[in-house]
């Protein structure tokens, strides 16, 4: 069973500031992510969900606790190991896409590979496959300024996937998209998760986006507050959506009573 755990988060805390100014963003969070899971993380603003994602992405270091990816502690990574982790083990999907706007779509997608010594030629096959899956073959030679928002995010998704990462981290990936483009992107992510068993961790505000997940963690004030599991076999996306909305309502209304 241990083999199936891609990511283990163990009692992670994050404290900003010192003394009287201390802010506890994460107060000891523990959970596992299993291989092939599509995990959603939800919570109100300031609940600590982005801090958690940033800890997993090594953008910030936890104050205490451990984060293990396939059994190795990522907070001990330095230098090349850290760069390799960022480039090969995780794929990151940003809310604002973060494409380099002076590179063409093709160059943007290949970037994580070329940073690790793979040439465009070598990555050609992989690129074509991803591009057709993401429906961006037509824009491969265009610059970001010549693409629509949806195309940009799908290019960013291709970039996050090209290095075959163990886990894809997505920070509000639909935050800057309209509903139609959000749906296209989520359908693609869902398909990849299903067909390739790619593990995805997605932070979102949006109950509709969250309904694509197989499990959802709710965070409040730096603690795990609630967990929802989709009954993959029997439950439809719509009914899971209902449950999510209900949970959010309870989270919002009942938080005073909980604390």
């Amino acid at each position: 069973m241990n083999l199936d755990r891609v990511l283990q988060v163990e009692s992670v805390t994050k404290v900003y500031g010192k003394g009287d100014n201390k802010t506890e963003a994460l107060r000891g969070i523990s959970f596992d992510v299993l291989e092939g899971e599509f995990l959603g993380i939800m919570g109100a603003s300031g609940s600590g969900k982005t801090t958690l994602l940033n800890c997993i992405a090594t953008m910030i270091k936890p104050s205490s606790g451990r984060i293990l990816l396939k059994g190795s502690d990522i907070s001990s990574f330095r230098g090349t190991q850290l760069a390799d982790y960022r480039g090969k083990e995780i794929g990151y999907l940003f809310q604002e896409f973060e494409l380099l706007d002076n590179l063409t779509a093709r160059e943007n997608i290949i970037l994580p590979l070329s940073l690790h010594g793979v040439t465009g030629k070598q990555a050609g096959g992989e690129l074509q496959e991803l591009a057709s899956r993401m429906d961006i073959v037509d824009v491969l030679n265009k610059f970001p300024s010549q693409m629509s928002g949806g195309q940009k995010q799908r290019v960013a998704a291709a970039r996050a996937l090209i290095s075959k990462p163990s886990i894809v981290l997505a920070d509000e990936p639909t935050g800057a998209l309209d509903s139609k483009n959000s749906k296209v992107l989520l359908d693609k992510l869902y398909a990849i998760n299903k067909e390739q068993q790619k593990t995805i961790v997605m932070v979102t505000h949006d109950a509709n986006a969250a309904s694509y997940c197989s499990r959802i963690l709710f965070i409040q004030d730096g603690r795990l507050f609630h967990e929802l599991r989709k009954n993959v076999k029997t439950e439809t996306r719509d009914s899971f959506y209902e449950r999510i909305v209900t949970a959010i309502a309870q989270l919002g209304g009942g938080s005073a009573n909980v604390l």
């Binding site: 590179l103 160059e107 290949i110 590979l113 070329s114 940073l115 690790h116 793979v118 030629k121």
Partner: peptide, 9 residues
Amino acid sequence: PARSGLFTF
């Protein structure tokens, strides 16, 4: 296409 690293960037 034949170069890797930050060449393109």
